[in-house]
Each structure stands twice: as C-alpha cells, then as structure tokens.
C-alpha cells in the first residue's frame, strides 16, 4: 500500500481529532516532568547514602511505606512508559517500509506499554512490605518480628 504524503503547506483536511498534535504536545509536557521525576529517583537511589549498595527489598519496602514515593513512582511509571512508547512509535513510523509491518509493530508497542503499566501499577498498590513467612533479616525494620 502506497503511503500518501500531503504537500507540507496544504491545510489540514481531515475532520478527526489531531492525535499527532496531541502526541507531539504530550512529549513536550511529559519530558520536563520526567526530568524532575527521574533525576530525583536517580539522586535518592544512586547518589545519597550508600547508593546502589543499599538497594534491596527492605530499601524498596521502606520507600513505598510512604504514599509520597508510591505516587512518585506511579507518575514516573505512567509518564515514562507512554513517553517511551510514543517515541518508539515515531521511530517505527520513520523506518518501517511496509504498512502491515508498521501497524503490527505499533500494535505490539502499545500492548507492551499497557501490560507493563498495568503490572507496575498493581505492584505499587498491592505490595506487602512484610510478607508472611519471609526471613526477618530481609524485611524493613518496621515489620513485626514473627
């Protein structure tokens, strides 16, 4: 199937919502938000304290005991996945030569995005910092000693 490229200076003729424009705008709104979210994430996890050496189950449990970090990580998850998937979609649109390949890749991209956003959201909100039967030394200090 041939791809029809409109003359760049011709006015928009389609009557539907301009999804390309909203996608373009989303990248420019989510980008600066992600800079704040991701760099705070990197500083708190890799720079302060013992950095990467301190990261284990108890570290994550300690962070998610605070709703602040739950909301922080949730916002980062959603914005980063949609921003990244939309960026990958742009690249697929640039390089995929066959229409069926292009459409298939974009469908796979959004399916993966949906699955990982759902998985991550469920993990953040159903997470148990003190799972029964787990070794006490692996758990955060606020867990009751069984």
């Amino acid at each position: 199937m041939a791809v029809i490229i409109e003359t760049p200076n011709s006015p928009r003729t389609k009557k539907q919502a301009n999804w390309e424009k909203y996608g373009w705008l989303f990248m420019r709104v989510s980008g600066p938000l992600l800079i704040v979210l991701v760099f705070t994430h990197l500083i708190s996890n890799l720079v302060v304290g013992e950095g990467i050496k301190a990261i284990d189950f108890a570290f994550v449990a300690g962070k998610w005991a605070d709703p602040f970090w739950q909301v922080w990580d949730l916002a980062m998850l959603w914005l980063a996945m949609i921003h990244g998937t939309n960026g990958m979609r742009t690249i697929v649109n640039d390089y995929a030569e066959h229409e069926t390949v292009r459409k298939s890749l974009i469908t796979i991209l959004w399916a993966v995005c949906g699955l990982l956003v759902l998985l991550g959201t469920l993990v953040i909100f159903t997470f148990d910092p003190c799972p029964a039967g787990a070794a006490v030394e692996l758990l955060p200090s606020f867990c009751p000693v069984n």
């Binding site: 994550v60 990982l116 998985l119 993990v123 997470f127 787990a134 070794a135």
Partner: peptide, 18 residues
C-alpha cells in the same frame, strides 16, 4: 525501562527473588 519495571515487579514475588 522495560527490564527495570520487570525486575522491580519481583518485590511482589518474594524478598529473596528481588
């Protein structure tokens, strides 16, 4: 990011797995 969401999801499996 795909890998990092999956590895973080292991906190839901068990402390040992994560």
């Amino acid at each position: 990011l795909l890998v990092h969401i999956l590895d973080t999801a292991l906190v839901r499996v068990s402390p040992e797995a994560y």
